[in-house]
Computed example of a mutant assay.
Amino acid sequence: MAEKRILIVDDEPNTRKGLAKMLEVWSAGRYQILQAENGQEAREIIEKDKIHLLITDIRMPEITGLMLVESLKNAGKDLVVIIISSYSEFKYAQEAIQLGVKNYLLKPLNRQKLIEAVEQALVDEERIERNGVIEKVIDEHLFHIEVKNDQTRLPIKEACQYINEHLNEPLSLRNVSQSVHLNSSYFSFLFKEQMNVTFSEYVTRKRLQAAKKLLMCTDLQIADISAAVGYKTDKYFIKLFKEHEGLTPSKYRKNV
């Protein structure tokens, strides 16, 4: 069964079934096409399954399309949405835009325009999902440190580059300071002064960020990920990961 889902919400059975048939032919099994006859049924489906694109009629009894979109937004479910309507009044389009609706199509629907709107909406959904993944991986503290790194002097910039290129290898204060031709003590002082974080904390944060990417984007075993980011034992890696992230690498992978 296709993992991506498109939900069509319309109280008119013929319109709803016609749209579903149109998208099923276009999809050719790439997407699961779901249907709901009203806003309440749509909410129940969205609570149960992840929906990648919502296509909803604007005029429906009790819960209108715009009310449905607004309630989902208030609940933190910021879906990619296409509104379909028999009404072309500007106030509806204006409200839809304010709610972040991707497209507003008028009935009777033109097949080509519908498919184009759906394809563009799914491209937008992929981009949003990718950005969501990036946000989950990024260490905000590390991000701000590295923004500041743009103003640091050359030896520390070179040290950070060396660390990034050798994360899977032993990284001691001694060998990194030697790579930039500085005394260890002076290098440690300079690093903390310019980066506002100790050398060891920086290395740990870089390794754990790299580990999070591997946990999310690969099927590698925890032991392999541990080795890939420079830890000799997965036991120590798991302990460190839990201290920083609040959960084990396995639970992190499952949750995100």
Score class of each variant (00 low, 15 high):
residue 1 M to S: 15
residue 1 M to F: 10
residue 6 I to A: 09
residue 6 I to L: 13
residue 6 I to N: 04
residue 9 V to S: 05
residue 10 D to I: 09
residue 16 R to E: 02
residue 18 G to T: 10
residue 18 G to A: 09
residue 20 A to Y: 01
residue 20 A to R: 11
residue 22 M to W: 10
residue 25 V to P: 02
residue 27 S to A: 11
residue 32 Q to W: 01
residue 32 Q to T: 11
residue 32 Q to V: 00
residue 33 I to N: 06
residue 35 Q to K: 12
residue 41 E to Y: 00
residue 44 E to Q: 14
residue 44 E to C: 04
residue 46 I to P: 08
residue 46 I to C: 09
residue 51 I to Y: 03
residue 52 H to F: 14
residue 53 L to D: 01
residue 54 L to D: 04
residue 56 T to H: 05
residue 57 D to M: 06
residue 59 R to F: 09
residue 62 E to W: 10
residue 63 I to V: 14
residue 64 T to L: 02
residue 65 G to R: 04
residue 67 M to F: 01
residue 67 M to K: 06
residue 67 M to Y: 00
residue 70 E to K: 13
residue 72 L to A: 02
residue 73 K to M: 07
residue 74 N to L: 15
residue 74 N to R: 14
residue 74 N to D: 11
residue 75 A to G: 13
residue 78 D to Q: 12
residue 78 D to P: 00
residue 87 Y to L: 11
residue 87 Y to T: 02
residue 89 E to W: 00
residue 90 F to P: 00
residue 91 K to G: 00
residue 96 A to Q: 03
residue 97 I to C: 03
residue 98 Q to N: 09
residue 106 L to W: 01
residue 113 K to L: 14
residue 116 E to W: 02
residue 116 E to P: 01
residue 122 L to N: 04
residue 126 E to W: 01
residue 128 I to Y: 04
residue 133 V to P: 02
residue 134 I to C: 01
residue 134 I to G: 00
residue 135 E to Q: 10
residue 135 E to C: 03
residue 136 K to E: 10
residue 136 K to P: 01
residue 138 I to G: 01
residue 142 L to W: 04
residue 147 V to Y: 08
residue 150 D to W: 08
residue 150 D to V: 06
residue 155 P to M: 12
residue 156 I to T: 07
residue 157 K to Y: 08
residue 159 A to R: 02
residue 160 C to R: 03
residue 162 Y to E: 08
residue 162 Y to G: 01
residue 162 Y to T: 10
residue 164 N to Y: 09
residue 164 N to Q: 15
residue 167 L to W: 11
residue 167 L to S: 10
residue 169 E to F: 05
residue 170 P to Q: 12
residue 170 P to N: 11
residue 174 R to N: 08
residue 174 R to I: 11
residue 175 N to D: 10
residue 190 L to G: 01
residue 191 F to E: 07
residue 193 E to A: 08
residue 193 E to I: 00
residue 196 N to I: 07
residue 198 T to R: 09
residue 198 T to E: 08
residue 201 E to A: 12
residue 202 Y to D: 08
residue 203 V to D: 03
residue 205 R to N: 10
residue 208 L to F: 10
residue 215 L to E: 02
residue 217 C to N: 13
residue 221 Q to F: 05
residue 222 I to S: 05
residue 226 S to M: 09
residue 227 A to Q: 15
residue 228 A to L: 07
residue 230 G to H: 12
residue 232 K to H: 14
residue 233 T to E: 13
residue 233 T to M: 07
residue 233 T to H: 14
residue 235 K to W: 01
residue 236 Y to H: 14
residue 237 F to P: 05
residue 239 K to Y: 15
residue 243 E to F: 06
residue 244 H to N: 11
residue 245 E to V: 08
residue 248 T to K: 13
residue 249 P to D: 05
residue 250 S to C: 00
residue 253 R to N: 07
residue 253 R to L: 09
residue 255 N to E: 14
residue 256 V to Q: 14
residue 256 V to K: 15
